[in-house]
Design a protein around this nucleic acid. Structure first.
Lengths: 244, 244
DNA sequence: ACACAGCAACTTGGCGACAAGTTAAGATGA
DNA sequence: TCATCTTAACTTGTCGCCAAGTTGCTGTGT
């Protein structure tokens, strides 16, 4: 199996490669038991710790799980949801369109401290109050994204009162007379979840999160309505970024 | 510092949070020494192994490095290059436009075995030969992306001979008379590098890679020229995905 | 023949002792 | 006084033993 690679590749990575290869090639199916640490250690002629480290990484990446006293098993591969990352429709609409059972929970509405960069983005002055509204997006009961919106009370006077109840910002804006929206300056980057984010998204520390930040503007007036920051679980999504 | 969180957050994650917080808040600067494992173990009242695991993760994510016998130190934060992920210009042009010193190394040109999904994407029949051409992209001497192109000899008869010398596919296509290009069905996902990819990109196993797959088409004829797969180091880039 | 307790052989989980490397201070000798 | 070696006290790295949990076999008593 390991077929004598040249040199200098540490064995831990090699073991990960081998197991991953067996997963993607479907040599092993979900639920199947992985050979024990001692067996693998003997097979690769490495100390058990090396095998342990490799398997721990696979567990933290969400491919396997372990039960003390029993063994390690392959998890069922979670099917990745395809999502249009850009565009003019809201997160809520995108998911509804795609036919998914989307639920949203409002978890946060608080005033935040002054921050020059952020305040500038939404054209807020130092004297304005900026509110951070946080929601968690669930699909089939599974948390899959954390969605933060930053809005100023200059533009939305009732936001302090309304904020804690809002589930869709677009719906809120529509109720206030805004009709068409667009996103600007969308930036994508990768991060790992903090312990708080791990709790909210119910995931291990080694699941990368896709961070999308953008400004949402009102098409009619060209005004910036909010700054948006969404943290997606990268294991639950495939993103369609095709330009129309 | 750790300020009594409710419960059930394992200490390892908490230590990572704390160190990360000190990095982003610039409480600690690059090159600075991190407290020793024993000191941290005493501070958080956890076994040294827990501290070790936390610091090992930070090292594999590229934030710190360690020297046996000396200690652990903060790495200099690598500035992230901003890149337009979509669009009609080639990778080469994008980077040149942005003013970066881009070098490309051709590492691979080989015929690949039949694969229904892939062959269909580029309109190749089972009898055609499909070639996989691999290049590594360097910026300031640092490898930052692996770029694979899949082309059939049906469309490009000389590809077997020309392939190993190609550094920019777009330049090759232009030489053959194609003028304007577009990408279709762009899909973005996240993966971790295999040991081979780690060697090519000179990075640790815990640096997520951004995978972008798309079809490149000739605007004039609407024909699919190639299937493209690019693996970007997520720590070296921020992606601008704004729609024009 | 059957039920059940106990044990042995496996599994994964955790920790502590030691190995290996670095540094700086201090002893030693010319 | 100066150069050099020794040593002790730190650092990170590695390994192996034992704890904890599960399973199945086996012996024993009814």
């Amino acid at each position: 199996m390991q077929g004598g690679l040249p040199i200098s590749v540490d064995m831990e990575t090699q073991i990960i490669d081998d197991v991953m290869q067996q997963i993607v090639s479907k040599t092993m199916k979900h639920g199947e038991k992985i050979p024990s640490e001692n067996e693998l250690a003997a097979k690769y002629k490495v100390p058990r710790m090396t095998v342990r480290n490799a398997l721990t990484k696979l567990e933290e990446r969400g491919y396997i799980y372990s039960i003390q006293g029993k063994g390690r098993y392959l998890k069922e591969a979670s099917t990745q949801i395809q999502l249009h990352l850009t565009g003019k429709t809201s997160f809520t609409d995108k998911m509804k369109e795609a036919g998914y059972d989307l639920k949203t929970e409002n978890i946060l509405c608080e005033m935040i401290a002054y921050n020059e960069q952020l305040f500038n983005k939404i054209n807020a002055n130092k004297e304005d109050s900026v509110y951070k509204i946080g929601r968690i997006r669930y699909i089939n009961g599974e948390p899959i994204a954390i969605h933060y919106s930053y809005v100023s009370d200059k533009m939305f006077g009732e936001i302090e009162k309304d904020g804690p109840k809002i589930k869709s910002m677009f719906a809120y804006y529509r109720k206030l007379g805004y009709k068409e929206f667009a996103s600007q300056k969308s930036l994508l980057s990768i991060t790992f979840p903090t312990s708080e984010e791990q709790q909210l998204l119910f995931c291990k520390s080694m699941i990368p999160l896709i961070v999308v930040e953008s400004e949402c503007i009102d098409v009619a007036s060209n005004e910036v309505l909010e700054h948006t920051k969404i943290l997606y679980r990268s294991d639950k999504f495939k993103y369609d970024i095709t330009m129309d």
